[in-house]
Design a protein around this nucleic acid. Structure first.
Lengths: 334, 334
DNA sequence: CTGCTTTTTGTTATCGCTAACATTATTATA
DNA sequence: TATAATAATGTTAGCGATAACAAAAAGCAG
């Protein structure tokens, strides 16, 4: 392993000078020496020891990405949306000269460990929110960025999308196409986050247009009997003709269930998804969905993180990115 | 920040004793002291500083996952299969008490940096293989595990699946169902890896059964004009009735193209995929595919890594995991 | 109680690097 | 040319932990 000292000896300077060169402190070292040292470092294949750096400078160039690990079966990265986002984030962060590590966390202890163990420069919470956040914030001075969190705490920086408007847009579009009897399919745990806001946007828009959706039309996407439910919903005297669902993956389940129930999409049933994952356009019919721009989101998260790292006093922000209706073929005009 | 020293002072012992307790060297510290120290550490919210540990012990509890970053547009983690694997790997590694960091690498320099910068304990190469591997191996003594690599170098440990057999299985199944005129759709860059072995297994099995597949039936999945190609293929005097493709994602593209071309699956065209991603069962018709067990793969990679980390002298292995036909509804019996 | 082993604890140096300050070389100013 | 200002380099002391060895305490046989 090549160290600063090795290079220093080769170059006949002190290791501090080499350190300065390696850290690009151009105005502290003469050009000539800098050039020479760079060349030697290159030749010797020097790679700075990040641990030593982190230790000495009390700051690492390392970011932690935190994923929720509430149970064994949850697999956040199996979700196409999440993993795409994570991948983009990783790339962006690397571009900024930082490294990214991943941590599944399930409680305060985990989060604490995650943030302190490598004294990371910052952390991104992926689609999760912990009750203990106040405590975490108090214990740590490093920037924390949340994504898709609906905490009411003003002092945390969050990057999310306009879920509410996404719901509205979906409702508007269904209404515009003549649908009046609608249903919502999403995770049972609506909670007070992303899902709830989509649902609220959806319902409010309906209500504003004089349409109401009965509570029994809010269906748990986790149910085993999706076909039966769809059948009941769509075969009554006042059949449901349009469904808004909270993810494209879920939409694919609805496609399958509808098919089994003998319901054609979009002829018998229109479906509108959320996310616009890569596969959505290849479903049959191509899925009409509320698109969120994952690259943009990753970019914003990364930039915000850098800003906070470089300047402690940047105030917390709540960035809400717009969503966009991606019109394809899964909603029909009545 | 709480350090060993702080705890030591509180407990009235030397920091070395605390270090021993924290590292679980039970037989070096009396039970009584150990207990007391643990309690104090707990109370003070001690989190070991991994950088300092890595520096002092010349070994970190950190694993690097390396992803290929050959161009801006490649997004390995957008692939459902890859990201699921990555997610599983992350979880398993964490369970072993290690941390995982992710690195996109595009050349020797990147890989070198990745391995040395944090003096990681080991690295996993995700579906990539670098020409310079010999050099990398020589420069580093840490265990390197490859996945899905078809290097001929005996000294590298690899975990992959039986791609060849996957191809065979697909062919057998199509033949069994009476299909005789077949096509293969996959990335243009067949290379000499995963894709080639699937194709070879497929072709060999066909040949062994007296069937041959003309070269023009090997189609680039990247093509813009998939519908046209399918149309030509399936509408001639001797129409193709079965397609083997190299991923489930690709299969979904074929579904879409077939639909556009007015070809019904499986009535006009049978399709068999590869991977068995989460969404495959929800396609219409549910996709018959060659399943690979991602959890198993992650598990094997992780166990192998641990074995190599704990014992330098474990010989390199080439683990080939079996694949399994997942029979669903996209292949019809003729 | 002595001398021995074994257990338990402590000391010192070091890992590779950087912060903070000290020094020397260089240039500019009077 | 002397002197101040600036630029370039060096020195020292850690960062928080562990390795390796050293010392003290405890246990035990005779």
């Amino acid at each position: 392993m090549v160290t600063l000292k090795d290079i220093a000896e080769q170059a006949g300077v002190s290791s501090m000078t080499v350190s300065r060169v390696m850290n690009g402190k151009t105005k502290d070292v003469s050009q000539k020496t800098a050039q020479r040292i760079k060349k030697i470092a290159e030749e010797m294949g020097y790679v700075p020891n990040s641990s030593a750096r982190a230790l000495a400078s009390r700051a690492s160039r390392l970011i932690a990405a935190l994923l929720s690990d509430y149970d064994e079966e949850s697999a956040p990265l199996e979700d196409s949306y999440n993993s795409s986002f994570f991948g983009e984030l990783a790339r962006q962060i690397q571009k900024e000269g930082y490294d990214l590590m991943i941590h599944y966390v399930k409680d305060y202890t985990d989060i604490n460990y995650s943030l302190k163990s490598w004294n990371v420069a910052g952390a991104v919470f992926l689609g999760m929110f912990d009750e203990n956040i106040k405590k975490i914030q108090k214990d740590n001075t490093i920037p924390l960025i949340f994504t898709d969190s609906y905490s009411s705490i003003r002092s945390i920086t969050n990057v999310g999308i306009d879920d509410y408007q996404g719901g509205e847009t979906a409702a508007e579009y269904l209404l515009k196409n003549g649908h009046r009897n609608l249903a919502f399919i999403g995770p049972a745990a609506v909670g007070n986050g992303v899902i709830m806001h989509r649902l609220q946007g959806f319902c409010t828009c309906l209500r504003d247009n004089g349409i109401s959706m009965p509570p029994e039309h809010i269906i748990d996407s986790g149910t085993e009997h999706l076909e039966q439910m769809l059948e009941e919903l769509c075969r009554g005297s006042d059949p449901v003709t349009g469904i808004f669902t909270t993810s494209d993956f879920c939409a694919s389940r609805i496609y399958a269930a509808a098919y089994q129930a003998g319901l054609g999409i979009p002829d018998d049933l229109s479906v509108i998804g959320f996310d616009d994952i890569r596969m959505s356009r290849y479903l049959t019919p191509p899925l009409t969905t509320i698109r969120q721009d994952i690259k943009k989101k990753a970019d914003v998260v990364c930039q915000l993180l850098m800003k906070h790292i470089k300047n402690q006093d940047v105030p917390a922000e709540n960035v809400v990115l717009g969503v966009e209706l991606k019109e394809r073929g899964s909603v029909r005009k009545i």
